[in-house]
Design a protein around this nucleic acid. Structure first.
Lengths: 345, 345
DNA sequence: TTGTATGCGTTATCAG
DNA sequence: CTGATAACGCATACAA
């Protein structure tokens, strides 16, 4: 007596119905017509499968097809709404094309990032979207060259061949700095994130060139910070407020640092914008409700996520329909009340 | 001539080294000693595997072992920092035990939620953590009864056997309401989320019983709202502010609704707390920096995530070490400046 | 100390 | 219109 297959498999369903696994497989994968399977047979299979909750085992399918319909996503911190929003739109865009998301949070640790990359690779994800942490992306490049589809979002590596989507960081920073200058500010501090990564470089360049365009000298003493986190923003602001001369405005290249800056300013019993003006790169939902509604540079998070998925699927399906694989999205400059016009003083 | 196996497989490495796949497999899975494999052989295998970047194919492994070392996670909105934080701690706790996270964002749609559940199931995740949307959890129960390990977080179903971790919502709501009463408030509106789900029921019960304890009547006209979103909070607050008598305090059962409330209050040119007091369930990082620092109930997000993973792994590994599979975590009531003491007036 | 054979559940190929 | 067979890559029982 033949042992019955374990339940929930199409083989079991086939035995159960006196058919071959092949036929069941064909029906369940929507290939009934293509193989001219009798419509009574097809319908019977479908209804029995539904009744018994039998669905093709993805693991076996993945092995056979050498495809997992899964995309890996690596972000520095999913609790940060910037990446949360990104992830959300990546997930929903991927879902539309029947892909699932395997999530890795690198926790701001480059070791975890590398580890995650190999983990995703050994899990045979069809492609990887990553928002990298650091200055170097050699581990990505290696994998990419070995044929694994990859798209980089947000932070990127300018001199690397891997496709990326990011904001037009240079222009955004230029515009924000110019806005401060137009409002009469002459000593403008810049709190940067991790130096050396493409993102930071572009933003700092925008800041510097805006100053230069308006005949202001760039004093690198006023370019501070080295991490995209709240604590750095706090510490650097504490120090900036002790400087002589004291800057009249702070341009924070990230929202976490802007938070740190706000708490430092609060602690020193100073007010925004009366005592010091503040602009933040990155926009969060509640900026309009802060004690001083914060002027900020909003990135197109949602669009960024969708484009990343599209570019990745493009690689996976080898369509190569993208003419340019380095995309920069425009940003939106939301002027609120955290910058004071000091032209007259 | 034998065709060479596709690269990156154990079999290829075995052929390459003149060994059997069995031996390689044993070495690479750390079973070298157990099978008394020569230490020279073992070392050679390990170094060659590293050199050629060969790692056992997870898909094949999963199929053979009937285990994927993957946990499914379904959340209503990963862009919401509450769930982002939860996800982050779930991911890192899972990682410690060598599990990966397959992420689904149900997008506040119950249809997507059900769809995601079957998706995860057909992907053979070893277990599922879900923060459900709705009033009914029958689809979870069905799967759970079929033997799929599940843990529910945050919103839960009180009369259902599935293990859950949540906050002590009743106590938290009771405490917050009592605080308002102690500050002289007599007409306290409550903006609830989705009615009927365990979370809402408990919070509303806490609110009601606090009123009753202090001899205040419960007027259900002042219990409004039906969705955990910003728009509902906005609309309901708009209406509340037109009431006669007007409530002197609003207790929002969620942070999104609290936001909606804030913008409605702002629009009506009223101020918190001078014109109306406000408390929010759920705490967000920046509450302390709002124009009126917001008094709020903070949940232990991180702990919740970690416990959820532990309970899930407990089920998966059939250890069943949890005496009680319904866990309620204490909350923290953070008093700031959004409640005015009106006792004297 | 190592190898051979088998099966996990599916789908593609070929055969009818 | 349907079925038998092989193979995806791995890990185990059994054999040596």
């Amino acid at each position: 007596m033949e042992p019955l297959s374990s339940q929930n498999t199409i083989k079991y369903l086939a035995e159960h119905m006196g058919l071959s696994a092949t036929t069941v497989s064909r029906v369940l994968s929507g290939q009934a017509k293509r193989y001219r399977i009798g419509s009574k047979t097809a319908k019977a299979v479908i209804s029995e499968a539904a009744r018994l909750d039998i669905t093709p085992n993805k693991t076996a399918r993945n092995l056979r097809l050498q495809k997992t319909n899964t995309l890996g996503l690596i972000v520095p911190n999913i609790a940060n709404p910037f990446f949360g929003t990104l992830a959300r739109h990546i997930e929903s865009e991927a879902r539309k094309s029947n892909y699932s998301i395997l999530l890795c949070d690198s926790g701001e640790s480059e070791m975890v990032e590398v580890e995650s990359l190999w983990l995703l690779n050994s899990n045979n994800v069809d492609g990887i979207i990553v928002s990298p942490l650091g200055q170097t992306g050699s581990h990505f490049l290696e994998l990419y060259k070995h044929g694994k589809p990859i798209v980089i979002v947000d932070r990127y590596f300018p001199d690397m061949d891997i496709p990326y989507v990011t904001s037009d960081n240079y222009r955004a920073a230029f515009e924000a700095t110019e806005y401060l200058i137009f409002n009469g500010h002459r000593i403008i501090a810049c709190i940067q994130g991790l130096p050396g990564c493409g993102l930071t470089t572009d933003r700092v360049r925008g800041y510097k060139e805006a100053l230069q365009k308006h005949g202001l000298s760039v004093n690198t003493d006023f370019i501070v910070g080295d991490q995209y986190d709240q604590q750095r923003g706090y510490i650097e602001t504490k120090l900036l407020l002790k400087r002589n001369p004291r800057p009249t405005a702070i341009f924070s290249l990230g929202s976490s640092m802007a938070f740190g800056a706000m708490s430092a300013i609060l602690e020193e019993h100073l007010r925004v914008p009366d005592d010091i003006s503040l602009i933040s790169f990155d926009e969060l939902q509640y900026f309009a409700y802060l004690s001083t509604p914060l002027t900020a540079i909003a990135q197109q998070n949602a669009v960024m996520g969708e484009i990343a998925v599209k570019m990745l699927l493009d690689q996976i399906e080898s369509k190569d329909t993208f003419r340019d694989r380095h995309i920069m999205l425009p940003t939106k400059f939301n002027i609120r009340q955290s910058v004071k016009n000091i032209s007259d003083s």
